[in-house]
Simulated scan of single mutants.
Amino acid sequence: MNDQRSGSETGKTIKSIETMLEILESIRRREEAGVTEIASDIGMSKSTAHHYVKTLELYNCLEKTNGRYRLGLQFLTYGGQARAGQRLYQLAKNDVDRLAAETGEEVRLAVEQRGRGITLYQSTGAHVDQARSYVGQVEELHCTAAGKAFLAALPAQRVEALLDDLELRAFTPETIMDRDELVAELEEIRARDVAFDDEERHEGVRCVAVSITNRSDELLGAISVSGPTSRLTGDRFSTTIPNQLQNIVGVVEVNTTYSEWEENVPQ
């Protein structure tokens, strides 16, 4: 499991909770797993792993089917409440829906958290039969349009720290694996205010993303539009969808500014 704690947050921790989270992450990566797989992945005895998963199952955090465990619906309760408390979700949800209707494609609202991109909300247009992503999906930053939009919008010191920790792993033949090449592309993204993923994460899929910032230029998130290469082609990929995205993000940023101003007005 990747260490998701930032350097400033490391210190005394409770080992049993760390182990529980490692087990949950192991299952999340696989979608489902047996006790033997979990024990091998975490590096513990099968009997110890069994005690953990039975406890998690008792609290509806895991579900068991045919001897294999999946994440339970209890996390839907936690996740739903966590998302409902996100101001960006409240402010951008309707605009994401509108963009999905306009483009007919899959539109996602994502946030950056500890060096990874997390889908906060998604909406699908008329062209999409089945979404490729899901709410809560975690993705690497170097190979997605939203991830590169995040990196381009973050302060230089933070970007350097993230790049030091990022494994530039290849997912397709188009994935950027060279740090200098990635840094050069981030400069281009800053100049044009739009990021592209041309089959870098999934073969046959293209994506466009624009970051969302507040009036202090702090990164809040990003909105992306993705679709198959057969539909996202030519001017539609390079110009039309980027323009639609920038317009929508502009609306979200205005609403964010107004929301912050309203919050600070004395009652």
Rank of each mutant, 00 (worst) to 15 (best):
Q113T: 12
V53I: 07
G234C: 08
Q90P: 02
G79H: 07
G250Q: 07
N94T: 11
S259V: 02
G72Y: 02
S211Q: 06
G221I: 05
R116G: 01
G34M: 08
E9V: 06
F150E: 02
R192L: 09
I223R: 07
S40K: 05
L232C: 07
V205D: 00
E263A: 15
I118F: 14
P228L: 05
T124R: 02
L166V: 07
S230R: 06
A209G: 07
L120S: 01
L56K: 12
T175L: 10
Y89W: 10
D165N: 11
L162K: 01
R190W: 09
S224K: 05
W261G: 08
T48K: 14
N247R: 15
I23T: 02
E140D: 08
G85E: 12
G67F: 08
D165P: 00
F196K: 04
A146D: 00
D95K: 13
D235I: 04
R231A: 09
D41P: 01
T77E: 15
E106T: 06
E203V: 15
R192A: 11
P155R: 12
R108F: 04
E25N: 14
D197G: 07
F196V: 00
V194S: 02
A153F: 00
T77R: 15
K93Q: 15
A84H: 10
E18S: 12
A145K: 01
G117I: 00
E181D: 13
V96T: 05
N66H: 06
L154A: 05
A152N: 11
E174C: 11
S226Y: 01
D178N: 14
T36N: 14
R28M: 03
Q137T: 04
A222G: 09
E139G: 06
Q244S: 01
Y69Q: 04
G204L: 09
Y78M: 15
A222H: 00
A126F: 11
G115P: 11
A82H: 11
R206S: 06
D3L: 13
A156F: 10
F75E: 12
G234Y: 10
Y89L: 15
S226A: 10
L99A: 06
